[in-house]
Write a protein that binds this DNA or RNA. Sequence first.
RNA 1: GCGGACGUGGCGGAACUGGUAGACGCAAGGGACUUAAAAUCCCUCGAUGGCAACGUCGUACGGGUUCGAGUCCCGUCGUCCGCACCA
Length: 876
Amino acid sequence: MSNERYNARDAEPRWQRRWDDEAIFATRNDDPRPKYYVLEMFPYPSGRIHMGHVRNYTMGDVVARYKRAKGFAVLHPMGWDAFGMPAENAAMANKVHPKSWTYANIETMKGQLKSMGLSLDWSREVATCDPSYYKHQQRMFLDFLKAGLVERKQSKVNWDPVDQTVLANEQVIDGRGWRSGALVEQRELTQWFFKISQYSDDLLAALDKLERWPDKVRTMQRNWIGRSEGLLIRFALDSATTPDGESEVKIFTTRPDTLFGAKFLALSPDHPLAQAAAKDNPKLKAFIEECRHTGTAREAIETAEKQGFDTGIKAAHPFDPDWKLPVYVANFVLMDYGTGAIFGCPAHDQRDLDFVNKYGLGNTPVVCPDGQDPATFTITDTAYDGDGRMINSRFLDGMTITEAKEDVAKRLEAATIGNAPVAERQVNFRLRDWGISRQRYWGCPIPVIHCETCGVVPVPVEDLPVQLPEDIAFDRPGNPLDRHPTWKHVACPQCGGKGRRETDTMDTFVDSSWYFVRFTDPWNETTPTTQSVADRFLPVDQYIGGIEHAILHLLYSRFFTRAMKATGHLDLDEPFAGLFTQGMVVHETYRRADGSYAAPAEVRIESDGERRRATLIATGEEVTIGSIEKMSKSKRNTVDPDDIIATYGADTARWFMLSDSPPDRDVIWSEENVQGASRFVQRVWRLVSAATPLLPEPGTAIDPAHAGARALRAAAHQALADVSNGIERLRFNTAIAKLYAFVGTLHETVDDPAKPLETDPAVAAAAREAFDILVKLIAPMMPHLAEECWAALGHRTLVSQAPWPEVEEALLVSDTVTLPVQINGKKKADVTVARNAPNPEIEAAVLALDAVKSALGGKPHRKIIVVPQRIVNVVA
RNA sequence: GCGGACGUGGCGGAACUGGUAGACGCAAGGGACUUAAAAUCCCUCGAUGGCAACGUCGUACGGGUUCGAGUCCCGUCGUCCGCACCA
């Protein structure tokens, strides 16, 4: 065997250069073969890539290389999600311009990605901060505006006091800004909105068709969109108790069946009627103020106590004008859902029950669970929201909930107050419009001009892009665009009068909502898309990224696809046909005695057989091995991809990323397991080096009658079938397990003391085929090693361009099968029979087995179950 | 609170639509080679009983369906994730 070690540091750059020189990963838009679009979520250019990127991009690259070998015109591009806050933070902290900071980071990270050996078409690279990209985004903004998909409105917004910007609801997590972590405040501002809610129904319904999306993500989006069917009911107000000008209140309910259990109405503190009532009621006014404050603090989780204030207003029950219900203002009623008002049925809604128990309004159960006696069924602390029959509900009594809902809806639709029906059926969504205004510099400028006479005027398309000014100061927080001395002062395109540019920029989620479209023709300077090309390559066949984008990015992209279709930029229903969410890369943490963290690179791990100990390399100080956590700077448990590639090579890193865990689960980065991957790289190289001199020319005919040759071919084709299947199903860890096993088999052949490889031409010919297959199988995962082996095996082509081998199915089935034999479901023996042996023959063979005879002890069996090709079970 | 996913050796995990539980990797132990170490190669490796052939138990726990259950059903416990006053 050769002693020469495989030198990744030498081989990897060499092959990368060759791929580059021959431009083998560039995709031609006129390639006539069937297309396959594989895409990984593009990175934010934060400075350096991290292990999460390595995992994400390795998975995508395996798919890209595999599909390319399968004969597809593969589109596999990369770009940069390059606008955003960190560039401005860096500008403030280090006096670097966001642009130079961003482009320097892109340069560094591009080099890192290249060192991973990814099969990307770099000629399609885009950066969202480049005017050549955001120009088209501005164009689409104007098109959306024209199409009625953009709106400017006053709204209560989530204000992040640290980043000094507005956040979308999706960007507020537990009441805190998703990036800054600061407690979010409520403010009234005029904002630009994309009318995503216009597509609520479609965005929801189309989820059912996204069969290649994880159920988890679809469920999350379903919940986020939050469709609920119900009834909008008008309650007439008692004029004697009601402020002038008010005569009714509208409420939304999904439980009209419980109308006879109503005890009160409740308004949101922001409800117009509440405001009106507060005018002459200082106590109510004070209460509303209080609600606002606790509302903004958002500590709702622990201080969830229901509070209300009786306005004194009385509302008439829709089925009984003499039945008056008190109208409260309550802190738990949300203004921006439904109508901002509810009716409370305490017996069947926990919130309402908590409320009446506090204010002594009582409750009447109107739904009685089956098996309970309606006469004695009572509610005290726990509302009943299950199924049952209507009680205490006059004409509804005895009906099911569904029947009662229908009956109430029909009656109230037919009834009228004034000239309008009392109620109408309504569908409500939780999803609200997407506020895209950000008070930031480093984002895509919103292309409109505010004119003193004409109002809001779109920037003419021929004036695009509205470019960001480069002379900008970051000495204060807030929006530098707004403070720029000249940039915002322009003439109105309509009247030529005094105008002012919009100084808000777009949420960076806008940038990432269509980059996958732009990749199809990034060279088009005049329009955002070239429709024929976009329609050819889209949808993305396989999209891969983190679960953290399950809602925001993916929902926005789905909206954008619809909006682009509506404005004639695309003909596409859904952007991502297949979605895969990969798990995180996690690592142990190390803590010093003083509580500070130590980095993996500073620590030496030793095992004394019983347990693992960690010491600081520099001082020998013992450190505690802590829990396994997501890699993060704060826990200092990160591993730098550059270090790993320098030490082991990209192939080892790639192989490790795929091998240890199922790709949708977290993978633990462990030094021992990386070394295992590294050993495997060397093992493959040694094996190929040892075998090569003994192998005949590629394509040498193999004697089909030779048993040894056939066995070897069977192993190769089985591995081929298994690895292909693993990649197709994105089960990379199982594909890799099969490769380990296959290499083991080849090793046995090469190491066989009988030396058939040297003496038996049939075996040698089979081995030639097997080695060629092996190298093709490892190529998607370890492309550099594969190229090196491919060349060593005497090929002059690139394995990266070689076709995927075809499975010869005939090799996978043998003439005989060995079936496990069970007695009463426990395995006791094996039986080998002809593959197509009829059942009686198999039964006879089984009953003749010693193990079966002794187990039966001379008694007759009761039954034999033969599952063809699988198993035999004898029932004693 | 609501919704979802999961629970298999010392560890990561495998087991297609119910059909030989623990593939493959890591760690560990033993051996070969070596002056020695590294590297490499070979063997062992769920628990338990037995000298052994072999037996018994075993996929969080308790039931059930089935010739047969890690897989399906019911219940319990635990872990993780998402949403969180959405009427």
